[in-house]
């Protein structure tokens, strides 16, 4: 299995793909939950929108102003969130986000962590 965080300077092809064409970009008009996050050290700004149908996520979208790793992390997170319950979303870890991307450089760990924080912020918003 690919390790979540790798000693690499460069991004994997999967990460590059997400940066070139991030998934689920934009806002949801009537979201059930909105999470926001910034990374003060580098200035990344992220917004996550979730729409639920019953107990499960029907739509996840995001807006992003940040580096390649946070763009890819959010893109991956919106893919991973689909169909999950709030409880399942709470269980998503930065490692799983990085694994979904085929590994992130170790010095970008904080980007996957920011994605998780934004997700939890959204779930708090819904609660």
């Amino acid at each position: 299995m690919t390790p979540a965080f790798v000693d690499a300077h460069h991004y994997s092809e999967t990460v590059l793909g997400h940066i070139a064409e991030p998934h689920n970009v934009g806002a949801i008009e009537r979201p059930d939950a909105v999470g926001r996050g910034t990374n003060p050290s580098c200035g990344d700004e992220v917004t996550l929108y979730l729409r639920f149908e019953g107990e499960r996520v029907a739509e996840a979208k995001m807006e992003i102003l940040g580096c390649g790793a946070i763009t890819a992390s959010m893109s991956a997170l919106t893919d991973m969130a689909g169909g999950k319950t709030a409880e399942e979303l709470m269980a998503i870890t930065p490692e799983q986000i990085a694994e979904h991307l085929g590994g992130l450089p170790r010095h970008k760990r904080h980007c996957a962590q920011l994605a998780q924080r934004v997700l939890r912020d959204a779930l708090k918003d819904r609660a």
Binding site: Y11, L16, I19, A20, N39, S41, C42, G43, D44, L65, G66, C67, G68, A69, I70, T71, R106, H107, K108, R109, H110, C111
Partner: peptide, 24 residues
């Protein structure tokens, strides 16, 4: 953001660099 711009240019075959370094 510089790095995402850099990567978008790179995917078009244009190599530049950035002063924005979001790192640990």
């Amino acid at each position: 953001e510089g790095e995402t711009l850099l990567i978008r240019l790179d995917l078009e075959g244009i190599a530049v660099s950035t002063g924005s370094a979001c790192s640990a």
